[in-house]
Nucleic acid binder design. Structure first.
Lengths: 344, 344
DNA sequence: GTGAAAGCGCTAACAA
DNA sequence: TTGTTAGCGCTTTCAC
């Protein structure tokens, strides 16, 4: 299984390696007959040029690295696939790593990707989503980004990372307007960590909107935790236990919403008749739950394109806006309805 | 942002490039003082050796390519992450591509991965799952596998691919034994395409087990289609429309099960009191649905390990059994219960 | 239009 | 222990 090279092809075709290279890259004229001979040999041996050797001279490798927190979470897998498709259309390839929430791993993967000489790295979630950037982490990132440009979906104070963000303010606007429009005045916010930028921004927006509508802000209605089913379930249970019970709940994502929904059902109430539930991310889960879930979509395709375009621009040294925002959209389904009369 | 090389380090350290290489690979003795000097410079410039150049001489690149049908499907993302973790533990890295069910893309990706000189490719799903292998496809694969070894989760007749499969016979056994043990005699099989090996094997097992228990095989109870929510929903609706209605349903995966469940609920019946529902894959969905879903688990961690070990063995030219089976396990939850008295 | 030769960044064999 | 050298497979001047 000895690897065949352009020299093998060249020898058998009776031409030089340079000529074989020319037909491979197709960027210089080669006499048609020679060209055909070479192509026939390439076919015959099923030869494919070694991308490693190629990118050694090329300098640019046409590969983008992606570090995601965990593709087993639908949000990340959707963003990743969108990126992969966008990259392919632009002649790039992507490499995925899962940091699984471990900072050490995240850093190691960034190093590995740099060793592979990827043109740029896109970081989905992870430490770059922190509200307050860790100093030590920032320092390490700064060292790495002197080598390879980094695109993040959050922010990283004190670094030169490009940012492509979901407009979190707009996202909470959509949800609050929808619910308030349905007559809800008692709206809870469940799940997420306040030290994560996007979650913090949602909380900020939540308070701002309440004030605009002259509605009370209640400490008890804001219940953070993680981004999973368990958090939604547990926090909704606590809301039932300690009261007061809201007429609508905004969950930090579809998984948390599933937990909220189970808690509500277990307490003998109906969705949306008794309590409306809505969430973020608009993953496939929204269609599978009963009732179907109202959720905020991010135009994943566009999101992926923007991310990849930004990464490619960075890789090729082209200027791009330092911060770009993706506008979210509300998808209304069956889990939200007008508040019951006499309530609120 | 000119890339720094071992020569830059060597010059500044007053040693030869070979010495720098030696401290990098750590496989030869270097005088401590020189070693420290070099390491200091590596730190200073945050230097990381070019993996491309490295693997040019190394020949083996310590990278495994993975082609999955679609990581947005939980099954694939779980297998992928398991593979990634197993690979990391063994000093390997993985590259993921999504074929999205397109044969052309699948082949293109196989080529791209070969160009990257990955040591082996693992194909999750895709054409290698076909019951009857397409001749033209097999031919193309045979050409490629003369270059790079391929590990599949299905089979590919007429090729030399290693196979790591879920034991589909055992999987249907588990489900049927469980349901029959609960007194069910009317069991439907919903979703999946019969031209997919694992689905076909389940169907075979289904008929065999019915016969062993002297139960009738009813054509109407076997309803194929896709592997998605829609199929489950549509086929269960048809079952209601055309009758007879079974007392238990086995869905081809958790997504299809979600569709089946919605259909049942919409027809005013309860799960599991009126109809039991069970499925394959044991994704996170099983915990989110209401009621929680009984499902067959595949020990994803082991599955990933076996896949990666096989791929690495293939990459390094070590012999491994041509076919290896993963034993599935039944996870019983709330969606299955004893059949109602008087039924069956 | 084509070949010879240099070089991409690294490792390993061979001397010293 | 260390440096020199050759070579991994390819692309790209530079002559002709």
């Amino acid at each position: 299984m000895k690897n065949i090279t352009i020299y093998d092809i060249a020898r058998e075709a009776g031409v030089s390696a340079a000529t074989v290279s020319r037909v491979l890259t197709n960027n210089a004229n080669v006499r048609p007959e020679k060209k055909q001979k070479v192509q026939a040999l390439i076919e015959k041996y099923n030869f494919r040029p070694n991308a490693m050797a190629r990118s050694l001279t090329d300098t640019r490798s046409r590969v983008i690295g992606i570090i995601a927190a965990d593709v087993r979470n639908s949000y990340y897998s959707k963003v990743f696939v969108a990126c992969e498709m966008a990259a392919r259309e632009r002649g790039y390839m992507v490499i995925l790593c899962n940091s699984l929430g471990e900072t050490d791993l995240e850093l190691m993967q960034l190093e590995t990707l740099y060793e592979q000489r990827v043109g740029a790295v896109i970081q989905l979630g992870g430490r770059a989503d922190d509200l307050v950037s860790d100093t030590e982490y920032v320092e390490t990132i700064n060292q790495m980004t002197s080598n390879v440009p980094l695109v993040v979906t959050g922010k990283l104070d004190g670094t030169v990372c490009r940012q492509v963000q979901i407009d979190a303010g707009k996202a909470i606007d959509l949800l609050m307007d929808h619910l308030i429009g349905l007559g809800h005045k008692e709206i809870a916010l469940i799940g997420g960590r306040k030290d994560v930028l996007s979650t913090f921004e949602k909380l900020q927006g939540y308070r701002r909107i309440l004030k605009e509508h002259h509605l009370d802000y209640r400490e008890e209605y804001v219940r953070d935790g993680g981004y999973d089913y368990e958090t939604g379930y547990r926090q909704m249970n606590e809301l039932f236990a300690c009261g007061p019970v809201p007429t609508a709940v905004i969950a930090i994502n579809d998984y948390a919403a599933a937990g909220v929904m189970r808690s509500i059902v277990e307490h003998g109430l109906r969705i949306p008749e008794d309590i409306s539930v809505a969430s973020y991310d608009n993953t496939s889960l929204t269609e599978l739950l009963n009732p179907r879930l109202t959720s905020v979509d991010y135009h994943y395709e566009k999101f992926g394109e923007k991310l990849i375009e930004t990464a490619i621009a960075a890789a090729e040294g082209i200027e791009v806006p330092q911060l770009q925002l993706i506008a979210p959209e509300l998808i209304v389904r069956e889990s939200t309805a007008a508040v019951k009369n006499g309530q609120g």
